[in-house]
């Protein structure tokens, strides 16, 4: 896999005359995602005049610029320079990425230690650990758990255990404000989206959509299977930053009962709750 990655060429393409896409690959892959964020960091540091903002996704970086100040050609040349720097540091970068990949794909028990221990990634050092996300599974908060039990032939308890037993990487935010696209869901609890999407999913619902899992930050229509609800706000426009987690953060769901859920929710609403990071 590493070998194929090495072959993967960076592809630059215009997205209209005010944006440009730097594409590192076409798959969801830890190494590719890491390169996206590396370039973003480098761009933020360099501060090229004319760049309005950048949007990192799973596999690409979309760069918005002001064509009156910066032409497509000139930006391409500048990017080629920055990407060359990346190449020379690839060896080091790839090693880290390789480790992160092991972390992401680690299966059952003992995984938490692996992430928390020795090899904390660059991003985790920045935020100081894995973000703990309390989640009240099943019941009225997870109405689809019953159907999943039947479809997957796994008990609800086991589904829940498999869901909170993995630390998920936030690959990107998108779709809704603060909506985290999480990678690393256990294959055994993959579940196709609802054939007919719900017209309103309550904010803070935790769901599974095929091989992805995530949290709805605001009320929204959607087709993901709902398995629980978190008392934490993933989007709060009054705060700076307005979102709970950023791309690169790792999050761990921590199962809580309804009473604990209510207690945490009260703290969140009164503003005394501080997000907890597991080191």
């Amino acid at each position: 896999m590493e070998e194929t990655d090495r072959e993967e060429k960076v592809h630059i393409a215009p997205v209209g005359d005010e944006a440009l896409l730097v594409e590192f690959g076409e798959r969801i892959d830890e190494t590719i995602n890491r390169r996206v964020h590396l370039l973003k960091k480098r761009l933020d540091k360099t501060g090229i005049r004319g760049i309005r903002e950048t949007l990192p996704t799973y596999r690409s970086l979309l760069i918005f610029y002001d064509p009156a100040l910066l032409s497509y050609r000139r930006l391409c040349r500048k990017l080629a320079g920055l990407l060359k720097v990346e190449e020379t540091q690839t060896v080091g970068g790839r090693q880290t990425a390789g480790k992160a990949q092991t972390v992401g794909s680690r299966q059952v028990a003992g995984k938490a230690q692996t992430v928390g221990g020795g090899q904390a990634t660059e991003e985790n050092q920045a935020v100081g650990g894995i973000l703990a996300v309390p989640c009240c599974y099943g019941g009225r908060y997870g109405p689809d758990l019953v159907d999943m039990e039947k479809a997957l032939q796994i008990t609800a308890d086991e589904i829940v255990r498999l869901h909170y037993g993995v630390d998920y990487k936030v690959y990107m935010l998108g779709f809704l404000p603060g909506f985290p696209y999480l990678g690393g869901l256990d294959e055994r609890i993959r579940m196709p989206r609802l054939a007919v999407p719900r017209t309103k999913i309550p904010a803070r619902s935790v769901g599974i959509g095929d091989s992805q899992t995530g949290v709805y930050p605001v009320d929204s229509p959607g087709g993901w299977r709902l398995i629980g609800k978190t008392p934490l706000d993933f989007y709060c426009p009054q705060k700076e930053p307005p979102v709970l987690c950023r791309a690169g953060t790792y999050i761990r769901f921590v199962p809580v009962d309804e009473k604990a859920y209510e207690a945490i929710r009260k703290d969140v609403e009164s503003g005394v709750y501080r997000p907890e990071y597991i080191s």
Partner: peptide
């Protein structure tokens, strides 16, 4: 279908 990507006004 593609792996979700950034989009812009005019895409």
């Amino acid at each position: 279908d593609i792996v979700s990507d950034g989009i812009t006004f005019g895409s």
